[in-house]
Amino acid sequence: MNATLADGEVAAGSPDLKSGELADRLFHAITAAAACFVLLLLGATALSMAWGGRLAFKTFGWHFITSSDWDVPAAKFGALVPIYGTLVTSAIALIIAVPVSIGIALFLTDIAPRWTRAPIAVAIELLAAIPSIIYGMWGLFIFAPFMANHVEPWLSAHLGNSPLVGPLFSGPPIGIGMLTAGIVLGIMVIPFVAAVAREVFSAVPPSLKESAVALGSTRWEILSRVTLPYTRSAIVGAVFLGLGRALGETMAVTFVLGNAHELSASLLMPSNSIAAAIANEFTEADTELYRSSLIALGFLLFVVTFIVLTIAKLLLMRINRQLGRTS
């Protein structure tokens, strides 16, 4: 962009301060406008979602989120199933991703031989680079059949009849469902949580760890009594960041969740998520109310992820301030 600005006009030490000042103001204004544009985009997104979804909110009121009745021919749209599916799959994803990510971060900061750390970290980061549609295809053609043939029969045979968790694992093993989607989501979230956890682990002041060593702590005790308490808020921030990612992930979930609109307790049954419902149905939405309902779902997703990501950012800012860094 600097090529278009006139060369040589304001040479070094030029007395022509006036034109320099004008150009300075202009440049400042352009950059400030671009920065405001970013704010504007976020605001416009929220407003247009709210505007597009107003018909659905007006028609159904609170029933929009409390009813599970998604009946297209009857023009009834209750979004409980996709909301439930989004929450359940994200919860499964976090249950898998959080301990694994913390383990990876610990491995990379304290255990791995030094020369292997960078390559392993890059490999884990590549998990985030793989497009979500690739996760989806792999999930549909490879992982879902694997779950149906090997994992789910075992789960329903061993856990399906137990009193407490039984209902979660009953039903036919078809591979497509909330459990499979949650696991795929978990894999996708791992690199994001692990990267933040690794960064904050390596930012723990060495003097703290050294004093624990001097007191005779084992490495596990250093982690559980020094590192984790010291980085607690940032780790929670990392978890929220992962949650934000999991809630909004679309394509991978669309492939393996089954697009069903029945509420079921079993994790082995097909379900739906907010993002998957929009992806599957939006181009087919032929009535104004149908389209508005899907946009209203998008609005809910946007608001929830906005809140979750804001919490994540605030928690992560706190540790950065502790460490004396900006942003």
Partner: peptide
């Protein structure tokens, strides 16, 4: 500071919502 904060949120915002927004606009 505000823009930097909001930008980080846009960075992780669900891409399907961005599709809906562009559809609307």
């Amino acid at each position: 500071a505000t823009v930097s904060f909001i930008n980080d949120i846009l960075l992780s915002a669900p891409s399907i919502v961005i599709g809906l927004f562009v559809y609307e606009v």
